[in-house]
Nucleic acid binder design. Structure first.
Lengths: 203, 203
DNA sequence: AAAATATTTAAACGCTTGTTTAATAAAATT
DNA sequence: AATTTTATTAAACAAGCGTTTAAATATTTT
């Protein structure tokens, strides 16, 4: 990868992303962000006006990525079961590449009516996915048991995301290293789809 | 309930529990804890020496409760399937009564060798539960599919705990109120055991 | 009741925080 | 080349933080 010389604003943003994800809003200090970016403290406010605004920008982008990738995978035009397997596989890889994202997104979420996050219309996005439609169709056709699609989707996402949220505890209880944790999570690529499908197939 | 006049130390501790669980270590301020307890700021340090020590005490107790309740349920001497249903039922109720606990325990976890949390030997506790033994027996007897017990247990706990960790997002995407969130979680008392058992039964 | 100890308080301490200022350096415009 | 604008800096600011102090009050012990 060609690491071209980044302009100051980008350097700050990348440093902020790193520091905010590792420490959360309260735990992150502007001086730490500035140091990480190799830049004077004042420049953070010069480019982003305030810690709060910088955070909002980072949070919005992270949230969009976190739920956006899911929404995209849910919307693929592949048969239902294939999609479940593919989604779990792809999203596991995504989380392995961004292991701090789930905890950050879920622990730093703040509700406010006119927040950018709300304007994403994530609600409608998830509710109207191809995945949801297919699931409803299969249930109506009698191929799957009568199940609440929300229960199914949150079971799947929850199983997928949980190890990353609970990573320190999981690592401790399971005596994992970084490598064996990765193995553990990769094994779930098989376990989770099998679990979801086994549940749905029982009529 | 008879709310007898609490002594100062207890008042501070309960206030600290409340404030730490709601805001985390960095977000919690001693003056807020003191106010919540209706007590002078200096008394917090008088009784607990430092914010750090107060936090450690709260965290240890919360962690013990969070994992201890699970360990206890995993150790009940009931048949495997009955236990799965009972565990999900009881732990859901426990989480409904302590909705902030999972996020607090998982986001504020810090590893350190001689921490009180480590001395709980939670690892050995979970690994040697009746649940684990039963699961292994059933698999060896050919009644259940060949599954990694850790995968099963973390799928179950993860499904159980996830809605509480992701509550704001789940609430938003699902258009839940506090009441309908509670309904949603209670429905999982059936979904989760069925999912786990459906998975295990496929050979 | 007097003395000793424990509890509580208001005030201040020193440090870190996010933020701003005012001066300097660099770049762009004229 | 002179001027204006933009970028960067060191330094300071006020506010908030966890913590300590020293005096006042309450309680316990003698």
């Amino acid at each position: 990868m060609a690491d071209e010389p980044l302009d100051t604003e980008t350097k700050i943003k990348e440093a902020a992303q790193k520091v905010f994800l590792a420490n959360g809003y309260e735990g992150a200090k502007i001086r730490q962000i500035a140091d990480e970016a190799g830049v004077n403290v004042a420049l953070v406010n010069y480019y982003f006006r305030s810690k709060e605004q910088l955070f909002q920008q980072i949070y919005f982008e992270t949230f969009s990525s976190f739920l956006g990738v899911i929404a995209q995978l849910l919307n693929e035009e592949t048969p239902f079961e294939v999609k479940v397997w593919k989604l779990v596989d792809r999203y596991t890889d995504f989380l392995l590449a961004n292991p701090l994202m789930p905890m950050f997104v879920l622990s730093e979420y703040r509700q406010s009516e006119q927040s950018p996050v709300r304007q994403l219309k994530m609600k409608e996005m998830i509710r109207s996915t191809v995945f949801m439609r297919q699931l409803n169709d299969e249930i109506e056709a009698g191929n799957f048991r009568k199940a609440d699609p929300f229960q199914v989707i949150f079971s799947m996402i929850g199983s997928l995301v949980f190890p990353f949220i609970a990573r320190p505890v999981v690592t401790y209880v399971g005596s994992f290293t970084d490598d064996t944790f990765s193995v553990f999570v990769n094994e779930r690529k098989q376990v989770i789809p099998e679990m979801i499908m086994a549940y749905l197939r029982v009529r």
